Structures are given as structure tokens and as C-alpha cells.
Amino acid sequence: MAGCFITFEGGEGAGKSTQIERLRQRLGGLAQPTLVTREPGGSPHAEEIRAFILGGHAKHLGPFAEALLFAAARIDHLDKTIVPALNRGTHVLCDRFADSTRAYQGSAGNIDEALIDQLERVTLRGVKPDLTFILDLPAETGLARARERQAGKGEGADRFEGEDASFHHSLRQAFLSIARSEPRRCVVINADQEPDEVEAAIWAALRERLPQLAENRLPDNAVRPLDVA
């Protein structure tokens, strides 16, 4: 049986990494094979492109050049990581995917939607998420969280965190527009609440949309394995 492909989207500071890890632990406790990955990145060549983009080295080339770089990284990620995992029955949890290109470069970057559509067709080759969680919160709240995280790590803002407030407001609306256009795939989660509440909302939505993932695959008398990060 093929694995399920679940993506997490949203603006900066939405808490995607936290919620992906919580979902990984829940699925691991049910003996559901799970792989966590991210974009840009998730494979050796894609990680190299990630460092180049987030370091701001492609910004002067413009949004379309960035979209092409993201597409190149995504092709490698799909070929080397995502598709092989799905084919062996492993569920894939991905921090960002094609919706981020549509939102960041397409909408906020003002690239024509038809051009983004064509780029997706070439890049994805029919691979789409089974379920996408869009973690939504006010741009100001997300940026404040991102700055707090940066301060804790002693890091500065990356390529997109450093954009002005209007960019991040546009970004939020772009993700909500994607959710409205694909309601069968996308679930909007209120991320402006405590992590436990966000986790509960995600789990409730997953049980409704992909109930097979909430099934315990361990026999009743089995010893539950330790969860290893």
C-alpha cells in the first residue's frame, strides 16, 4: 500500500516544525511508518539549493528565478526522497511543498498564475499531497515568533523572514486563497493558539480526512516501541 503524502504550509512563525514533530510522534505510537522532510531541501542537492536561496543569493535575480530554483530542488526531492518513501508504504510529512512556491513567488512575488501552473505540471509530474494543513495566524504574530526563534538561536532573518509586513500580509492571503480553491485537499488550522490546541485540531482533521492513519497497526499484545527522533 502506498504511503500518504501530508504537507504543512503557512507563513513565517506558524509552528509547522513543532506540529510536524507532534504528528510524527502520534503516528509512530500507532506503528505507522513515517518520514519527515522539508522544502526547500530534503535531499542532498536540494539542501544545497536551500542554502543558496535562504542565504539571499538569488534575491537579485527576481521571483521567477527563485521559483525555478525551488522547482529544481523539488524535482530532486521528489526523485530521491518523497516518491521512494511513498512507494514503500511510508507516510511522508513535509514542511512546505508546491503551495509555498505558489504563495511566495506566485502571489506575493507577482508571477502570473498560468506560469506557476505550467511550472507545477513539469515539476510535480502528477504527485500531489493527499492532505495539506495550512497553519494560519496574523502576519505580525508569526513574524514576532520568528524573531524570538532567531534570537534564541543567535541567527538573523533569512531571505523571506526579512521581507516587509506587506509581503507577509499578502502571503497569508495567498495561502487562504489556495485553501478556498482546493477544500478537499486543504484544511486551515488556527495557529494563533496554544500548541496543544493546534495539535488537537490537526489530529481531528486527519482522523476525518485520512482515518486509516489513525489506526493502531500494532497487535493488542505487542510491546510498543520507544519513539526515536
Rank of each mutant, 00 (worst) to 15 (best):
L27H: 02
G89S: 10
A67E: 07
L69C: 12
A51N: 11
G62F: 13
R74W: 07
A67Y: 03
G41T: 07
D95S: 03
S43N: 13
G55M: 10
L35N: 04
T34F: 02
C94T: 06
V36G: 01
Q105F: 11
R26C: 05
R74T: 05
S100V: 03
A98E: 05
P40I: 06
T81V: 05
D95Q: 01
Q105C: 13
G89K: 11
P84L: 14
T34V: 15
A58C: 12
L86I: 05
E39K: 06
A65G: 08
A67I: 09
Q105T: 13
V83D: 06
D76K: 09
L86T: 03
H57L: 15
V83R: 15
H60Q: 15
C94W: 00
G106T: 07
F97S: 03
G55P: 09
G62D: 12
I75H: 08
T90H: 02
I49R: 01
G29V: 09
D76Q: 15
N87K: 14
A46M: 04
H77V: 09
L35Y: 00
K59N: 10
R26F: 03
E66L: 12
G55S: 13
V83N: 08
I49Y: 02
R74K: 14
D95H: 01
L61F: 11
T101K: 03
H91D: 08
Q105R: 12
K59H: 12
G62P: 10
G28H: 05
L54E: 05
R74A: 06
I53W: 01
C94V: 10
A103M: 05
A103H: 04
H91N: 15
P33C: 09
I75L: 12
A72C: 12
T34A: 09
G42T: 07
A46W: 01
D76G: 12
G62T: 13
A51P: 00
A31D: 14
P40M: 08
E39Q: 09
H77Y: 11
S100R: 04
V92E: 00
A31I: 05
R74Y: 07
S107R: 06
A31Y: 03
G28I: 01
H45C: 10
A46S: 13
L27Q: 02
G55F: 08
K80P: 00
I49F: 05
L93F: 00
G89L: 11
A51T: 12
T37P: 02
L35F: 04
P63E: 08
C94S: 08
R26E: 11
D79N: 14
H57K: 15
F52Y: 15
S100A: 15
S100C: 11
R38D: 01
R88E: 15
A67N: 08
R24F: 13
A103Q: 05
F97I: 05
R88G: 03
L30P: 05
H45D: 12
R102V: 14
I82Q: 00
D76H: 15
